[in-house]
């Protein structure tokens, strides 16, 4: 495992921890899109179907369990927790799941590396992960005051994607036959979705003003 891949996993982990920290300690999910969190739970469920049958390393298995567990825990907090659910911004979080899930599933049926069930689900998870952040970005745009933890959550997620691209470039040059078009293109699309956010995030940081995305 190279440094980019490891740093990418760690920033991914950081994003989840920042979100759980916000929800658990402040007991608030203000500015967090439940739609995006539910899509991530579905992404991990579809991708880690091989968790018991395909052992790669203890590191992989533990990380998979963390991402699966945390994504369902976050959804539970927002939907069910007595206090947390009151801060959920239902009026502004209106993105429809099906608009993202259905096209991704159809695309996975049409474009995949092998048409086995687990392979299609894995491909579906890649496509869905690429667009799962959209409801969150839309919600951020509609939110007047983005708090620091929410901003950091999205920043860490974007950093994770950028580092994975560095990881693929590194692996392409160091490993023979390492070519994965589906992974790369969906990963690139996903990272580009953060470009706009990053622009405003760094500007607010540089000018020391509160983060706000233009409508």
């Amino acid at each position: 495992m190279n440094i980019f891949r490891f740093s990418g996993d760690m920033t991914h982990l950081m994003s989840v921890l920042v979100l759980l920290l916000k929800i658990h300690t402040i007991k608030s999910c203000a500015g967090i899109s439940l739609k995006t969190q539910e899509l991530y739970a579905l992404v991990f469920l579809a991708r880690y179907l091989d968790i018991v049958t395909n052992f790669i390393s203890l590191y992989n298995t533990i990380m998979k369990l963390i991402f699966l567990g945390s994504s369902f825990m976050i959804v539970w907090y927002i939907r069910r927790h007595r206090i947390v659910r009151r801060s959920y911004d239902k009026e502004h979080d209106t993105f429809r799941h099906l608009f993202l899930v259905l096209p991704c599933f159809i695309l996975a049926l049409l474009i995949n590396e092998r048409s086995a069930f687990k392979e299609i689900m894995w491909t579906f998870s890649l496509y869905l992960e690429a667009v799962a952040i959209l409801p969150q970005l839309v919600l951020l745009q509609r939110t007047k005051n983005i708090d620091n933890l929410t901003g950091q959550y999205v920043f860490f997620l974007g950093a994770y994607r950028a580092l994975y691209i560095c990881n693929w470039i590194y692996r392409y040059f160091t490993e023979p036959h390492y070519v994965h078009w589906i992974t790369w293109i969906s990963g690139l699309v996903q990272t580009l979705l953060y470009a706009d956010f990053f622009y405003y995030y760094f500007n607010s940081w540089k000018n020391n003003v509160k983060l706000q995305l233009p409508a």
Binding site: N54, M63, N167, E175, H177, T183
Partner: peptide, 10 residues
């Protein structure tokens, strides 16, 4: 294509 290689990322 080695499927183990394909699935070693998270």
């Amino acid at each position: 294509l080695n499927s183990g290689q394909l699935h070693d990322e998270l």
